[in-house]
Computed example of a mutant assay.
Amino acid sequence: MHGWPFLCLLGGIVLLGTSVQRLAGIGFGLLAAPGLMLLMGPVQGVALVNCAGIVISAVGLASTWRQVRLRTMVPLVAAAAATVPLGAWIALRLPEPVLLTGLGSLITVAVILVLRGVRMTALRGTGGAVAAGAASGFMNSSAGVGGPALSVYAVNEGWTARDFVPNAQFYGLLVNLLSVGAKGLPHLARPAWLLIAATMAVGMVLGGFLAARTPERGTRRVILGLALAGGVTTAAKGLWLLL
């Protein structure tokens, strides 16, 4: 059974990630994945990110499902479904130092792409949706960070925040379900699951409170800055273990 230090760190990471997700519409995977990988190991940490993503997306989608663009989502989700098994297969077979290095690097690159607002003609239309969905599905099942690829696609398609949030929630629900189906649930004792449920509930309330009082642009930059630091730290630990 895990001790109190583990539970305190676990609860803190989940609380931070959930609050940020509720505050900005993105951020749980970017912020929580590096910490959970370092705390629980890459496979179990990412599995927990995927489980939390299901809950967060389902709660958010309950009030926004009418705004989902189903025709746009079909190629994105279909492409992700094709690459989720590959990401899971790689994550379950590579040694932990290699995984930490690779996944930390993936998170770092993904954050940089979002920060720079990368624009590419190839990431528009159905072809762009397929490319973004394939990249996102692989990254979601292997690293717990499928959001950046979807964000880059949304930027190139000219989506507003109003367009992005409900569609990202719909996409996140389905792709995280696929990711959990490919890898299974993380191995945690009942007290840990109860703590996760409690901190997620508190995080959603806290994030909602902060959302009404925090400028969106500044919040987004802080989130991505923290995510970048987490990605670099995870990659650095992997390199340290390799060397």
Rank of each mutant, 00 (worst) to 15 (best):
residue 186 P to H: 14
residue 145 V to Q: 03
residue 124 R to I: 09
residue 176 N to A: 10
residue 92 L to Y: 00
residue 137 G to P: 07
residue 234 T to A: 14
residue 210 L to W: 02
residue 59 V to L: 10
residue 216 E to V: 11
residue 182 A to F: 02
residue 220 R to C: 04
residue 79 A to E: 09
residue 120 M to V: 15
residue 53 G to F: 04
residue 120 M to K: 12
residue 84 V to H: 02
residue 193 W to P: 08
residue 56 I to E: 11
residue 175 V to F: 03
residue 56 I to W: 01
residue 18 T to N: 03
residue 51 C to S: 10
residue 166 P to H: 05
residue 24 A to S: 15
residue 9 L to Y: 11
residue 46 V to E: 03
residue 94 L to Q: 09
residue 53 G to I: 07
residue 21 Q to V: 01
residue 180 V to Q: 05
residue 198 A to M: 14
residue 130 V to M: 11
residue 215 P to Y: 14
residue 91 A to G: 04
residue 15 L to N: 06
residue 151 S to A: 15
residue 213 R to D: 06
residue 141 S to C: 02
residue 213 R to V: 04
residue 149 A to W: 03
residue 26 I to T: 12
residue 131 A to D: 06
residue 10 L to I: 05
residue 134 A to D: 10
residue 238 G to Y: 07
residue 14 V to R: 00
residue 237 K to H: 14
residue 81 A to N: 00
residue 242 L to Y: 00
residue 136 S to D: 07
residue 1 M to H: 14
residue 67 Q to Y: 12
residue 131 A to N: 09
residue 118 V to E: 10
residue 173 L to M: 11
residue 204 M to H: 13
residue 74 V to N: 13
residue 97 P to K: 13
residue 60 G to P: 03
residue 26 I to L: 15
residue 106 L to M: 15
residue 234 T to E: 14
residue 41 G to H: 00
residue 225 G to C: 02
residue 184 G to V: 06
residue 103 L to Y: 10
residue 16 L to R: 01
residue 70 L to H: 11
residue 26 I to Y: 14
residue 227 A to G: 04
residue 158 G to T: 09
residue 77 V to R: 05
residue 73 M to D: 02
residue 109 V to Y: 00
residue 156 N to A: 05
residue 238 G to W: 07
residue 31 L to H: 03
residue 139 M to A: 15
residue 168 A to N: 11
residue 88 A to W: 07
residue 42 P to D: 06
residue 233 T to S: 13
residue 91 A to D: 07
residue 112 I to Q: 04
residue 239 L to F: 10
residue 10 L to T: 06
residue 194 L to G: 13
